[in-house]
Design a binder for these strands. Sequence first.
DNA 1: GCCTCCGTGAAAGTAAGTTTCATCCGTGGT
DNA 2: ACCACGGATGAAACTTACTTTCACGGAGGC
Lengths: 302, 302
Amino acid sequence: MVKTAKVSASHETGGLIVHISGLLPSLSPAEQRVARLVVADPADAARRTITDLATAAETSEATVIRFCRSVGMDGYPQLRIRLAAEAARRVEPPDARVVGGDIPPGADLAQIIATIAFSDARAVEETAEQLDPAVCEQVVEAISGAGRIDIYGAAASGFVASDFQQKLHRIGRTAFYFPDVHVALTSAALLGKGDVAIGISHTGTTLDAVEVLEQARARGATTVALTNFPRSPITDVADFVLTTAARETTYRSGAMASRLAQLTVVDCLFVGVAARNRARAKKALEVTAEAVQSHRVRGRRA
Amino acid sequence: MVKTAKVSASHETGGLIVHISGLLPSLSPAEQRVARLVVADPADAARRTITDLATAAETSEATVIRFCRSVGMDGYPQLRIRLAAEAARRVEPPDARVVGGDIPPGADLAQIIATIAFSDARAVEETAEQLDPAVCEQVVEAISGAGRIDIYGAAASGFVASDFQQKLHRIGRTAFYFPDVHVALTSAALLGKGDVAIGISHTGTTLDAVEVLEQARARGATTVALTNFPRSPITDVADFVLTTAARETTYRSGAMASRLAQLTVVDCLFVGVAARNRARAKKALEVTAEAVQSHRVRGRRA
DNA sequence: GCCTCCGTGAAAGTAAGTTTCATCCGTGGT
DNA sequence: ACCACGGATGAAACTTACTTTCACGGAGGC
C-alpha cells in the first residue's frame, strides 16, 4: 500500500461525511455499501449498533470495522460519536431533502436553480472545510519560491488549470498551462528541483495528468495533485495532495460539480501566494488591469 | 415552517445538558458527580467509555448506568451519542462579520480559506436567489431549439464560455466558443433567426463581447448576456439578461469572484436544457463518458 | 494454468455495557 | 440501645457489543 504518511489527511475536524464520500471510490464493494448507508443518513447510522449496521449493509461486522479504519477512525464507537456530532451540526435547511438531493423528472427551473445553487454552495463550503491549511501553506510556499510552475488538467479540469495559470501569471509568477499532453510531458521533462508541477483531475485517474506529474517528479520538481478522491492514482505521484469535496448527481457528474470546488482551492492558493508579497502582487494586478482598460466600453459604469 | 414529522420519544432532542442540570439536585450524590462531569464537558464525556467516566467520577459503572436512566436515556451508548450531538451543536459557527470581510494583512492560510469559501459560497447562493426563473426558462427554450449556439467571453469569462460550450456539446447541442474576437465576429455574422448568441462579461463593458452580441442580434439571432451588472452596455444588445451577484474584495477582483457565480448560472442552464430531453441527454453523456474511459488509469478504483 | 494477493465473513477473543446482589449506612421505630 | 427497613452503592456475574484472527475464494498477474 502507498504510505498515507503524505502531508494531507488528518485535519479532520469536521466534514466527516464529505471525507467519506471522497474516499468512497477507493473502498472495497462491501465497505462501499457501509459507506453509502452512513452518508445517506449519518444520524441513523449513529443510532445503530455495529451488528445492526453490518446487517443493513449486508456484510459482516468485520467489514464495518475495516470501514471505520479506512476512513481514519479508531473503531466503531468513535465513528458513531463523530457521526452523531456531524449529523447534529448540519442544521437542516427547511426542505433539505428536496434541495439537497437529485433533480426530480418534473422539476421546474426554479427548483433546478435552487438545487444546483445548494449543491454548488455546499461543494464550496465543504471543500474549504476539509482543506488542510498546513498542506496549503506548503504548496503556497512551493509556488512562491518556484522557478517555474507547470499546471496540467484535461477537459473540465483544464479550465481550472488554465484559470490558475492566468492568475499566477497576473501576479508575476512564471506559470504555464498545457492543453496538450505531449507538450505538457515535454515541458515536465525540463522541470527540475525548485520547480512546481500541479496536476488537476477530478477522478484522479486521468492517465495524462498522472504521467505528467510522474515525469515532473522524476525530474525533481515538487508535485501537487488536486483531486476529489484522496486515494486515487494521482496521489501516488504527488508530494502534496489537495482534495475537493463534490458529490455526484444524476444530471451533473461529479466532474462538473467539482469545477467550483477546484476553483475555490485555486482561489485560496492564489490569494495565499499573493498575500506573501502584497505590494508586488497588487502592483502587478493594477498594471494588468490597466492593460485591458482600452477594451472597455466608456461612458457607462463598469 | 415544516412540521417535525418525527413523533418519537425525542422530545428532548435539544437541551439535554440543560435538562441534566435541572435534574442535578434530585440525583443521588454519586450520580451528581457523574452529572457534573457531563455538564462541564459534554464532548469529553462523549469520548469516554463507561468505565472511564465511572472512574473519573469516582464511582462504579453501575452508577453511571443509573444516571443514564435517571436522565431518561436507555443506556450509556445512547447518552454518549446524544452528548456528542449536543456538543457539536453548541460549537459557535464562524463569525460572519470576520469571515465576510476583506482579508487582513496578517491573515494566515486558515483565515484566508474561510474568507474565500464564505464569499464564494455567498456569491453562488445570492446569484441563484436573484436569478429569474422565467428568464432562464426562455433562455433554456431558445438554446434547446437553436440551430447553433455561439458563446463568447474573454479572459476569466472565457473559461466560463468554454465550459458552457463543452457542456452543451456533450449533450449533443451544436455550440461554439471563440477565444478570438475576429473569429467570433465572423461567426456571429453567419448567425440567423433561431440561432442563439451568448455573451459573458463580468463588468458588462467588454467591448468585444458587446460587439459580438450586437452583430448576432443584427442578423436575427437571439442574444443572451451574462453579467454582474444589470445596466451595463452589454444588456443593451441582449434579448435576455442573466445576472450574477459577486462582490469585489481587495485581493480578488470581482471578475475573479464572479467565475463561480457565472458557472452556477451555466450549470442551471445546462441542467435545464438537459432536463428537456432526459433520455437523449443521458445517452449523450454516457457515450462521451465512455469515450474517455481509455484515458483512465486502471487497476485502482476511482 | 498456477500463484499470489486482496476482499470477505465465520468464529474466536476481548472489551464494553448491564444486571444482580450483597453490603453499607442512615433513619426511625420500639 | 437495639433492630428493622430502605435507599445508595460497588463488586462481580453476565450479556452484548466490538475487535481480531484466520481460512476460504476469486480476480489479476506471471
